[in-house]
Design a protein around this nucleic acid. Structure first.
Lengths: 139, 139
DNA sequence: AGTACAATGATACAATTATACAATGAGACA
DNA sequence: TGTCTCATTGTATAATTGTATCATTGTACT
């Protein structure tokens, strides 16, 4: 990986890591979809605690640049958010809806029952600006 | 099998698999007594380690919904209701809707745009009694 | 000095994977 | 029929990965 980190610059290590990785991705030396070093291995390389790397990764994850998955590793996102073009987006939306209706249909839902459920959720969505947390497991 | 699981959701994969399979059984697309995919084949399909699938199967087995037998395979229990009954079905439906809206939200869809798409599909659904074939995935 | 706060480290934990293992069943063959 | 072999199935356990929480360190400001 060989990131250039300056321990004396006064800039927090985790922020430096964030920047270096952003640069690597932008420059193409970290291909989309490729796996980043594990938090522990990169930490070892930089002689730093692995939580510091985890912090950097978490920031990049929240921005949507990488995807961190517990037990699996962290990967460069295939398509960073701005690149998702409008046409692709719409197609995805239609496909998503299609799958949703098919699944609901398999569960024996009528369109009336569906719109009833949908109404509740959308109301909350519009009023609060975000969706409610997923409900607990179906025991 | 074609289960929809989200690696980024933060919800453990094995729990997602549990839910998706519960829904399939509740919806009848996994008939009672039928064999589920082997842990290895489903793992291959989802690009996941087969122990993750085994964990999901073990949970479903402990609840009594499926029966896993070493060397033979795993099967949907002949009598899984009352576990999988009307209440479960409704819960599954709500959960499904929730996930759908969350996904759509991530795609930047407004509720207006959504209901527009939905309207088209549902109209066809009601007029023809079945849904049009799903469009190809946009990966 | 003392306090507050951000950065970093230590530790325990949860999810996933890797590897080796045991049970089952199908086919070959005596 | 018996049993051998082998591929296929699920199981068990340890290693690997990221996560959560709290402790420690350092720095700026009173």
């Amino acid at each position: 990986m060989n990131l250039e980190i300056d321990f004396r610059s006064g800039i927090p290590i985790y922020l430096q890591v964030v920047e270096r990785i952003k640069e690597r991705i932008a420059g193409g030396s970290l291909p989309l979809g490729s796996q980043l070093p594990t938090v522990r291995s990169l930490a070892l390389e930089l002689r730093v605690n692995f939580n510091t790397i985890a912090r950097a990764y978490r920031i990049l994850d929240e921005v949507g640049i990488i995807s961190t998955q517990q037990g699996r590793g962290t990967y460069v996102m295939e398509i960073s958010p701005p690149e998702v073009s409008e046409k692709i987006r719409q197609k995805a939306l239609v496909a998503l809806t299609q799958r949703y209706l098919a699944d609901a249909n398999r569960l024996g839902a009528s369109s009336e029952e569906l719109s009833e459920i949908m109404k509740d959720k959308v109301t909350i969505w519009q009023q609060t600006g975000h969706l409610p947390d997923p409900e607990p497991d179906v025991e």
